[in-house]
Design a protein around this nucleic acid. Structure first.
Length: 606
DNA sequence: TTTAGGG
DNA sequence: CCCTAAA
């Protein structure tokens, strides 16, 4: 808190490049951060010059920090809203926010997101960085980005809301869930029930927040007490009466310090989530967790993830992830790298382009504040089907590994230089599977909006906090035909199940690809087949277990107990559809065939 | 490519 | 979950 760092030229350049012209915002260059608590105090005045914050400003900022700790989420939210409004008002490409109130507000938001993205940039040395970076930045100033941002906002909640109407009940808690009274162990259970994965985090607050996020489909869980009712967080303290005035404070030359606040990160990740594609979303989530870890809350959790060491599989997936996930954004990222001051950064972070989704932890050597510091990075590796080519390749050439390695290495170097390797381009093209863009989601959610209880949760953005951070267990199963096939297992989270149920209710069972596309756009894993299988299982479970209501619930460990409410819904849907399809066919046939055909079916019985 | 069903 | 036949 005592350090005031001047933003680097590179950052300045970046902002200019990205065309930011808002009168003032705060820069952050986490690179210089030596202590994960806060940082960067820089003031920017109208002409874009950077001025190191003075001690006075520092004090001022400290005051603000107090506020921010509590109100950050609100600030961000209102800022968003404001941004939307002002953008709608002046869609003419005049993104400037005019009212002084609005100015300072959005300014703050922008600053926050900016900082966060900067932080992300640091924490997530991936190609996604620059794009997400730009994205966020733009969303702050250009209207176009706010639109897609608005859509998923509704859609996200709409999809999950419908089915949450049956509250997730953890057998112990009905209706109202009060996380405050739970022990850590209980919180762990709830956590698992909510996200389908275990956590080793022992921090109650963290758990509560996380769970609350999951249950409320919102990131806005920065309250200090956690009582969840009707999927909404009941806050004891400060009501929403707080009206975004406080922070506005109408400071033209505002120096804002941003701490590594969970709220901010959550908000950011949610914002990113809005319009980023899956992998980036994952990154966001990872960052959140990672950050928590850096706050020594989830250290062990991270440690758990670090266990697995890179294997052949890793290499394989690595290369695949690179080609598959990286492709879409790689263009953009290289582009942005192009106009970036220079790749001194890039050199500092060789791990950057390894893989967007890599879950494997790589510690990269980074220079933070002049010290060489090992920064653990969590990457996710895209789950993928085994590639026959690769395995074949590896079999044939003992050097197969080597090849793959060089391939990857190229990925490293690709950076600014163009990809000279034709084959690589080819791979990229071939493998590039542009994930379903948010737009689709938006459109869909718009037209699918049902008048039910959707409205209330409208504004809440849902980030499946467990989402992609959960481990994917890869188990190798020996197969008869000599090969060994890998079995990926990814526990279905409650939210996924709910999405699925809702998807089925909307589009009907059997239209898996539709459901996958529309309701699971953000889950790049979960193929339509997966959905189908899951539904099949749900069906089985619902019919098998509904009679004895406690069946699955009493069973503790086996697998995540699916809330009875959901099973009920499943059964209803199943029956509905059974009756929806059968009568149609039978009536059709009967009416068409008339009485003549009666004999054919069951002559003896009639 | 997507679905359905078996393993 | 994976695999595969059929559409």
């Amino acid at each position: 808190m005592e350090k005031v760092v001047e933003a680097e030229g590179s950052d300045e350049g970046k902002f200019e490049e990205t065309g930011l012209e808002t009168s003032n915002f705060v820069l952050s260059s986490p690179k210089n951060v030596t202590d994960p608590v806060v940082y960067k105090l820089v003031r920017v005045d109208g002409n874009g010059r950077l001025v190191p914050a003075t001690d006075d400003e520092l004090m001022e900022v400290e005051g603000l920090l107090e506020n921010e700790k509590r109100e950050t989420h609100i600030v961000a939210d209102t800022g968003q809203a404001l941004g939307c409004i002002s953008n709608e008002v002046s869609p003419s490409g005049m993104p400037q926010l005019e009212s002084s109130e609005g100015l300072s507000q959005s300014e703050n938001t922008e600053a926050d997101t900016e900082k966060l993205s900067a932080y992300l940039e640091e924490t997530v040395p991936s190609g996604a960085k620059s794009s997400s970076d730009d994205h966020v930045t733009q969303s702050g100033r250009v209207g176009e980005c706010l639109k897609p941002l608005d859509g998923p906002l509704e859609g996200g909640s709409s999809t999950s809301t419908g089915c949450i109407s049956s509250k997730p009940d953890f057998s112990k808690l009905k209706g109202e869930i009060c996380l405050d009274n739970l022990s850590i162990k209980e919180l762990h259970e709830v956590f698992k029930a909510t996200f389908g994965r275990d956590t080793t985090v022992k921090d109650k607050l963290w758990l509560k927040r996380r769970i609350a996020m999951g249950l409320t489909n919102s990131c806005d869980v920065s309250a200090t007490t956690f009582v969840i009712k009707d999927n909404k967080l009941v806050k004891k303290d400060n009501e929403d009466g707080f009206n975004n005035v406080n922070l506005g404070a109408g400071k033209e030359h505002l120096a804002v310090a941003v701490e590594y606040n969970e709220d901010l990160l959550n908000n950011l990740s949610s914002q990113i989530d809005e319009h980023q594609t899956t992998s980036e979303v994952r990154l966001g989530n990872n960052v959140v967790e990672n950050n928590f870890a850096s706050e020594d809350l989830a250290a062990d959790q991270r440690a758990a993830k670090r266990v697995r060491k890179p294997t052949k599989r890793y290499i394989e997936e690595l290369s695949e992830a690179e080609s598959k996930e990286y492709s879409g954004r790689s263009i953009a990222s290289t582009k942005s790298i192009g106009f970036r001051p220079l790749s001194s950064k890039a050199h500092a972070r060789p791990a950057r382009n390894v893989s967007l989704e890599g879950r494997t932890v790589i510690t990269r050597l980074d220079s933070l504040g002049g010290f060489g510091i090992q920064v653990p990075c969590v990457y996710r590796i895209r789950r993928s089907r085994p590639r026959k080519n690769v395995t074949a390749l590896l079999k044939f050439h003992p050097s197969g590994m080597g090849m793959t390695a060089t391939f990857i290495k190229k990925g490293f170097d690709v950076h600014g230089s163009q990809m000279d390797n034709g084959s690589m381009n080819k791979v990229l093209e071939a493998k590039s599977t542009p994930e379903q863009a948010p737009e689709q989601f938006v459109a869909e959610s718009k037209k699918e909006t049902t008048p039910t209880d959707m409205g209330q949760n409208m504004g809440l953005k849902y980030v499946d906090p467990s989402g992609d951070t959960s481990d994917d267990n890869v188990v190798t199963v020996p197969t008869a035909k000599g090969g060994i096939r890998r079995k990926h297992h990814r526990a279905w989270t409650l939210s996924e199940v709910m999405k699925l149920v809702e998807g089925v209710s909307k589009y009907g069972a059997g239209r898996w690809s539709e459901i996958k596309r529309l309701a699971f756009a953000s889950y790049s894993y979960r193929t339509s087949v997966d959905l189908k299988d899951k539904w099949r299982n749900l069906l089985k479970a619902s019919f098998a277990q509904t009679p004895t209501d406690k069946g699955a619930n009493s069973r503790k460990h086996p697998s995540m107990p699916i809330p009875a409410s959901i099973l009920l819904r499943v059964r209803e849907l199943a029956e509905m559809q059974a009756q929806a399809s059968l009568p149609n066919l039978s009536t059709g046939k009967l009416s068409a065939c008339g009485g003549g055909s009666v004999n054919e079916t069951r002559p003896g019985y009639l």
